[in-house]
């Protein structure tokens, strides 16, 4: 165990994967030579360590980057490609949605695509909606794709390692707002399994589910909620597909209430799926309405005060929990 930032933890995962498997290569815009010289970036120093054969800077061509991953994975390599900002995944989406997610099924199980797409996400740096937009529900809605979203340095490393060595296409969302965050990271090839949520803190009155940066918004809300005598159970989802249904359902059966928090638009967001799942499968346990905290249905604004309104804050979490409690 050693202390590392979230970005360093990602870097360590890539390093370990490339060391233990010569079929792992990385590609993307600036994964070798970056405009940033930040040692907290996931690909920092990998070109020097592994050379140009395995660390491939590409043209600004997202469809080609995703196609590269797809074709190479089908030939037995384990590509790890980067999409610089989440909204740019739309340029690669034909390769991911129409090909990575479908070709195994349509081959009758003859082909497989063990590829990883790292995509950098996040709000709060004033870049506006073409660089900030969380599209996880688009991906989760597309069959054949897995998607994970670490919130801690330990899981950044562990989930990325699991994704790289998973036999299926996995999208790993890296929250840029967490990049500098330090935390304890286990040494060596220690993986976080896909499809396993993490119980962050136990509670009795209401279950709070979040992933990525939204987890810390939830954590901030715990204190005021505690002061109001409300005990919340917090779950860090970590993996959207596969989904740890049991963890959520068990918790809701205990607390009787659910609030889902994410930074994506609330409308048709991933929280809607969790709300529907709980309504379907744990309706009898519910003591109050399932609430969702998310962004309004507008493009991500640029002006800091607007962006602050857009991004769900701890006060909204407190309000939602109180409503779930009937207060």
């Amino acid at each position: 165990m050693s202390e590392k930032t979230f970005g360093q933890a990602l870097n360590e995962a890539l390093t370990i994967a490339m060391e233990i498997d010569k079929n792992v290569f990385i590609a993307g815009e600036g994964v070798g030579v970056s405009i940033h010289q930040d040692p907290n970036t996931a690909t920092h120093g990998l070109l020097e360590k592994f050379g140009r054969r395995r660390v491939k800077d590409t043209p600004v061509s997202e469809a080609a980057i995703a196609g590269l991953a797809l074709g190479a994975s089908c030939m037995g390599l384990r590509p790890v490609v980067e999409i610089m900002f989440f909204p740019f995944i739309t340029l690669a989406s034909d390769m991911l949605v129409n090909h990575a997610g479908k070709l195994r099924y349509m081959s009758g199980g003859k082909s497989s695509f063990p590829l990883t797409v790292r995509v950098r996400a996040g709000l709060g740096f004033g870049a506006g909606s073409q660089h900030s937009q969380n599209l996880e529900s688009w991906i989760a809605h597309s069959p054949g794709l897995k998607i994970v979203w670490p919130a801690t340095p330990e899981d950044a490393k562990g989930l990325l390692l699991s994704a790289i060595f998973d036999p299926d296409p996995v999208i790993v969302v890296e929250d840029m707002m967490l990049n500098q965050m330090p935390g304890d990271v286990p040494t060596g090839d220690v993986r976080t399994p896909l499809g396993k949520a993490r119980l962050v803190s136990p509670g009795t009155d209401c279950t709070l589910v979040a992933y990525g940066t939204a987890l810390y918004t939830v954590m901030e809300a715990l204190k005021p909620l505690g002061e109001q005598g409300i005990s919340c159970e917090v779950i860090d989802l970590r993996s959207l597909v596969p989904l740890d249904k049991a963890c959520i359902l068990d918790s809701v059966r205990k607390t009787g209430r659910l609030v889902v928090v994410h930074e994506a638009n609330r409308f048709c967001g991933f929280g809607a799926e969790l709300a529907a799942m709980v309504a379907d499968e744990a309706f009898d346990a519910l003591k109050g309405p399932v609430k969702r905290v998310g962004a309004p249905q507008i493009p991500v604004p640029t002006a800091p005060p607007h962006e602050n309104i857009f991004k769900p804050g701890p006060e909204e979490v407190v309000t939602a929990v109180r409503e779930a409690m009937g207060k």
Partner: peptide, 10 residues
């Protein structure tokens, strides 16, 4: 063509 790119790269 983008799929083929990956195969040729491999």
């Amino acid at each position: 063509p983008p799929l083929a790119l990956g195969a040729a790269f491999a």
